[in-house]
Nucleic acid binder design. Structure first.
Lengths: 147, 147
DNA sequence: CAATAAATCGTAACGATTCCTAATTGTTCT
DNA sequence: AGAACAATTAGGAATCGTTACGATTTATTG
């Protein structure tokens, strides 16, 4: 996903172009990681001091419906990121410190689909691996054992 | 897990016996499915009209720390259930309508552990399959197409 | 049964998210 | 370019789940 592509999808779906929407998309293009609504708000308020929470939530929500953004819930808070470039189904390793992700292409459902039936209708699944990326791990160690 | 065992663990850890705690555990023993804090509160308020939210959350929380309850977050809300009898690591099929679950013993991490490293420190993972159990599926269809 | 610490109630506070209305802005059509 | 229309927005209030608090009650221990 990229800003231009996202703006096109937006137009096709009949949404209006606004500078704020473009900036929001640009933010996700720059920060390739999961962001909270609050992080998005604070970032955009640098250029648009009057920006309201409502605007952020509404736009995050419509972009997610258009599959421009991916959403997941981490530690009681919604997190958003640009949809991955790969169109194939995938999962993520997620750094709980900075929100950075790494893709995994294997999906556990491939192994299970056969055995699951038995009257249960599968409508979705979630597979996420949590931890610390190498950068945040280093930072933690430094902070724990200061010279 | 069962009520007696849970009460014993509670005692061992130095917590006091109260009628409310026993009733809360009994509820989870009867309802073998994920319940929200609100559902627990409403159920207990039948016998204890003055029951406060604080008490429910506090107890759910300590029981979860003692591994008497399992917790997961579904649709923005915490859900609790009695810990499964099997002590081995497992995952769940979860009915989003009624909270009933079915266990899966295969864990996707078994396949991935080898390939994941690369500086990423894994601290946890989540694998859940969502859908409708056979009972809720029937109920939905009836409701959708009334005679 | 008295002493003590834990548990509870009732309510207030909290943070994330949603909802509302009037004012503003982008788009379309001429 | 300008008028008309619908979509978007700001600002703040409302809601929801959850946590925090001081005062009171209760379980435990000796």
């Amino acid at each position: 996903m990229n800003v231009t592509k996202a703006l096109n999808i937006m137009k096709e779906q009949g949404f209006k172009y606004t500078a704020k929407r473009k900036e929001l998309l640009q933010l996700f293009s720059d920060e390739k990681r999961y962001l909270t609504a609050k992080e998005v708000l604070h970032s955009l308020q640098k250029n648009y001091p009057g920006m309201s929470v409502d605007t952020v939530y509404r736009n995050l929500s419509i972009f997610e419906e258009m599959d421009i953004l991916e959403m997941t819930e981490l530690e009681g808070e919604m997190h958003f990121r640009f949809s991955c470039s790969t169109t194939v189904h995938h999962h993520h390793l997620i750094c709980l410190e900075c929100g950075k992700t790494r893709e995994i292409e294997t999906c556990p459902m491939d192994w299970l689909n056969e055995n699951v039936d038995g009257g249960f209708e599968v409508t979705g699944h979630k597979f996420e691996i949590y931890g610390l990326c190498s950068e945040c791990k280093k930072a933690k160690h430094k902070e724990a054992a200061p010279a």
